[in-house]
Write a protein that binds this DNA or RNA. Sequence first.
DNA 1: AAGGCGTGGGC
DNA 2: TGCCCAAGCCT
Length: 340
Amino acid sequence: MSASDDDIPARLLAWYDRHARTLPWRSPPGAAAPEPYRVWLSEVMLQQTTTAAVAPYYAKFLARWPTVEALAAADDGDVMAAWAGLGYYSRARNLLAAARMVVERGGFPDTEEGLRQLPGVGAYIAAAVAAIAFGRRAVVVDANVERVVSRLFAIAEPLPASRKAIYERTGAITPASRAGDFAQAMMDLGATVCTPREPRCLLCPLSADCAARAEGEPGRYPVKAAKRAKPTRRGAALWIERERAVWLVRREGTGMLGGMRALPDDGWSARSDGSGVPDGEWEDAGVVRHGFTHFDLELAVHVSRTATPVGDGEWWPLDKLEEAGLPTLFAKAAARAGAR
DNA sequence: AAGGCGTGGGC
DNA sequence: TGCCCAAGCCT
């Protein structure tokens, strides 16, 4: 490094004062912090999800449930349906459970340790909310920070083994004041300058400090462990129609798409072979392909107007299908069934 | 502690 | 097209 670590937060915050992104859940640099509810809601939505994808959902949730009290009083099915399409549905289940805990205890915890007790709040979100909403010094490490810090210090150890070292290095450059702005500055830097491919080092306020840049190939970091191949599973979904209505069920439990409204299926999510359509006269409506995090799915869509409804469900009017809150997989299957 | 857990966009 | 990636958490 050409300068001491002490200068890093100062340079980064000066950069942030001029280049902070404007985002719906964020206050401008130096302004009063947003309400904890808004920070928490945005952080939950932003897990593994782009800001562009989150923005409309954040607006919708805030308009419909403006406070944590309103959210705590919401109907479970309404919240799940409002989350439909955003993915990682355990987030919605935990969101509601956490809102009810917060109301029960009379407000948000204002420490990392307290926040960690809420379901769906892990190390990252607890630190982010403590820093951004409550102004506490907290070491905030997300994937952006992992990338920036890996490059800044040329950490050669691959992720995820390097997480501990990254946390310590991040802690060493996190300032006592403006920790929330510092965290958001690191994330903005990672999102707009220190990008995964072809980082724009000429625009970076930390380029003089960056060991990876000094080495000449900053895009080499962070080093990542090899990932495993994604298998393909096959399954079937059932479109059972009567009088302009379709039979929808609610998926149980906390597994794949748990808690979400869905088409009946053959159990593909619990098995890898996919087999078996119940007796009856089924028309083949084709196959929907959908990629999940750890496997690809080829879902055959079977259509019947005479088959007996499967399981515990309800007849849903076709002209209101958009309001059913189907996850994207089943929205695709519905489109396939309708297009036959 | 490594794998389950969604989806859409960029290249 | 196929792969990588995006403000991770839970078990």
